[in-house]
Write a protein that binds this DNA or RNA. Sequence first.
RNA 1: GCCAGGGUGGCGGAACGGCUACGCAAUCGCCUGCAGAGCGAUUCCAUUCCGGUUCGAGUCCGGACCCUGGCUCCA
Length: 464
Amino acid sequence: MVLKFYNTLSGEKEVFVPLNDGHVGMYSCGPTVYGFAHIGNLRAYVFADVLRRYLEFKGYTARQVMNITDLDDKTIRASKEQSVSLREYTDKYIRFFFEDIDLLRIKKADVYPRVTDHINEMADMVKILLDKGYAYRKDGSVYFKVSEFPDYGKLAKIALSRINPGATVAADEYEKEDVRDFALCKEKKEGDPFWVPVIGVGRPAWHIECSAMSIKYLGATIDIHTGGIDNIFPHHQNEIAQSEAATGQKFVRYWMHCEHLLVDNKKMSKSLGNFITLRGVMDRGYRPEALRYLFVFSHYRSRLNFTWESIGHTSNTLDRLNQFVERLGGYNSSSRSNEEITMLIGRTAERFESEMDNDLNTPGAFAAIFDMVGEVNTAIEKEELSTENAKAFYELMLKFDSVLGILTLKEKEELPGEIEELIGEREKARKIKDFKQADEIRKRLEEMGIVLEDTKEGVRWRKK
RNA sequence: GCCAGGGUGGCGGAACGGCUACGCAAUCGCCUGCAGAGCGAUUCCAUUCCGGUUCGAGUCCGGACCCUGGCUCCA
């Protein structure tokens, strides 16, 4: 099976071959920490997470870097408004960011570089660009000279000649030589932090940070760079120009972008009142895994329409998947297996992998899983599933979940003695068909948060 | 205005030009002391519209309508 990814740069699915055998270097555009992340931002992080987990599933080791943008107009303005230091202000939202990704079971990247910790690296890079003639100073700012970089526009598929300078901005509003040029460093402003001592200009602009930090932690050329689709232009386009101009080497081999998330078919915005955060989802009583499932269930290159109805459905599916896996975990039967069911294990594993190999086709992977679930349930019903089979399916589900990250299996925890006793009492009552007593105990347990389910293999409990 | 990507059942969401994806919801039955889970069956004219190519179109071509994003330093 061949792993393929859609590369924004070529506009095609390409066979994935990392630069170094068995190892993948990836950079993911991270948060600007001036407020809570909304679920659209979170989708992009979950996408990067699934990608990374799948690379590991395939046997690669991955080194992942995600930037934290703590220096930009928004963070500066907000920290000033609240009269706290920039650091103090952004620390708060960095904490929230890490809480969110923990809740969504996103694996930690290897490095989370903060922009304010890498001013020197950026300055060095700007200096190289100035020395090489790719950049120029103008009134205290530094700009990248787009006309010096012939491939500019290739990623975004915008021809330089087609950029219409006067379309949206008045050309003479900016003191650039060419309106298409973009800022590497911004002019010093009164009261702003200015941290580019090396070249004596204002603070670095947005785009340069990803280039400088990516090169520092992953080298001049990386395998994969991820981000939201709205980063393609100008952000990623500018990253390519800066980085390749500075190093003379290819910057990114595979560009992968995640589509937008819509809410009720509309763009999320505060004014529409459809700005949703993970906390907002949880306040409505949904588990973080339900949101993650919604993300993972759709393809990353499709727009995802979030509705409260859809996340409600999602929750039900998750319950059933969890129960299915738990049922397998505790399965014990004298049933003999047959060849068909044994072959289903390998067949499903293969299907899962070939779907995922196809540019992370998670919806297809889920179809494989659900087909298997149905067949296994039928086998249980027909008493054709052996204990060994169940164990194999159980392990297979856990393996899939190492990529998907949606199952919440109850740990094999001991119940308090009191509850154990009640369950025992209820079993006794059921044996002598004292159902009134049995139902009463079940009700009491439910009030204590324990739900009982009677199955062929005996009574099972789960937390409410 | 320009550029790019889209419009699939009640909802979500897949699909090398070809064989009911899948999930959720709904209805009925089986199982169960009951409940839950599970199983079986079923319902619903699903591919935005109009033409065309083809033995065959959700998929390719042309046109229309609608949606989303981008269009340079946070408009």
